[in-house]
């Protein structure tokens, strides 16, 4: 009896280890490749570098075409932080309205908002570009951030609406008896209770913004404004010489903040998902 249980646990762990090796292999390969000389990266299957070098990191820190590496990091941070702040603030307000305020057309508007989830980004690229271009806002961060401050990320609004619906109405009623209007009910009762949903939203938004490539590619022209994902692609161009080493080094550096962010906040993320299931 005991032996079978032990065997089962052994098999389970062996399978889990095997699976994580497969999952982690690309990441390990990337980190290791960043220490290889550029000409040993592709076409060479060994994980450990034959010769270790920091050359790639020197190149990456040296920046691209006169734009320093720190500029790319700073731009990514600015975009990510503003995206998080904007999305959380606007989605929370919008979600409160959908969940608690009854106004004419609420259900229709809610359906329309959910409908935008089904609309692929690629369909709206060109009209959006024309709009921002005629407003003279191309080559600024406005096109990338305006939507975030207007609760255009329907997914997060929906997530928060569902969360608020799970908060007992009695709390609102108690606040109302104490004399609160919608503003203070939201600010003093609902918002503090929404912490898990807000953290989930922040983590996802941070990662999405950090990794966003197409938006910055279309709207930013000036290399001084480029965030990291654009800079990463600068090392590899199929029509000329490609520096895979520097690309790997910069990819590792670009992953550090997002990995740290995830490690720090992951317990909240799990908490957020866990409490979402609880009603009342």
């Amino acid at each position: 009896m005991k032996a079978t249980r032990r065997l089962r646990s052994l098999v389970f762990h062996a399978a889990a280890v095997a699976a994580s090796i497969v999952v982690l292999y690309p990441a390990v390969w990337m980190v290791m490749s960043s220490f290889k000389p550029g000409n040993q990266i592709i076409g060479n299957t060994s994980i450990l570098p034959e010769t270790w070098t920091l050359e790639n990191y020197v190149t990456a820190f040296g920046g691209i075409g006169g734009v320093p590496f720190t500029s790319f990091v700073w731009n990514s941070v600015v975009l990510a932080v503003l995206s998080v702040v904007g999305t959380v603030a606007s989605s929370a307000v919008a979600a409160y309205a959908f969940a608690r305020v009854s106004f004419p057309g609420r259900n229709v508007m809610f359906a329309v908002m959910i409908g935008t989830l089904l609309l692929p980004f690629h369909v709206v690229i060109i009209p959006q570009y024309i709009m921002f271009n005629s407003a003279g806002l191309v080559n600024t961060y406005v096109p990338l951030l305006a939507g975030k401050f207007l609760a255009s990320e329907a997914f997060f609004v929906f997530l928060m609406v569902q969360f608020i619906r799970g908060i007992p109405r009695e709390l609102d009623e108690a606040a109302r008896i104490d004399g609160c209007g919608h503003g203070r009910t939201f600010g003093l009762v609902i918002l503090p209770l929404m912490r898990p949903a807000i953290i989930t939203t922040s983590i996802f938004m941070f990662i999405w913004s950090w990794n966003d490539f197409l938006g910055p590619l279309l709207y930013l022209k000036d290399p001084d404004l480029f965030p990291l994902p654009i800079a990463l692609r600068q090392y590899v161009d199929q029509t000329s010489v490609s520096d895979y080493g520097a690309q790997m080094a910069m990819a590792v550096l670009a992953l550090v903040p997002v990995a740290l962010f995830f490690i720090i906040f992951q317990r909240y993320l799990i908490q957020g998902v866990a409490t979402q299931g609880l009603k009342g």
Binding site: I126, Y129, N133, L218, R233
Partner: peptide
């Protein structure tokens, strides 16, 4: 100046061309 790798470059130009910009 502004630059990108070949395929990204044409993605951006095609969008701009559609917008006359």
């Amino acid at each position: 100046t502004s630059y990108a790798s070949f395929s990204d470059y044409w993605t951006a130009r095609n969008t701009e061309a559609a917008g006359g910009a």
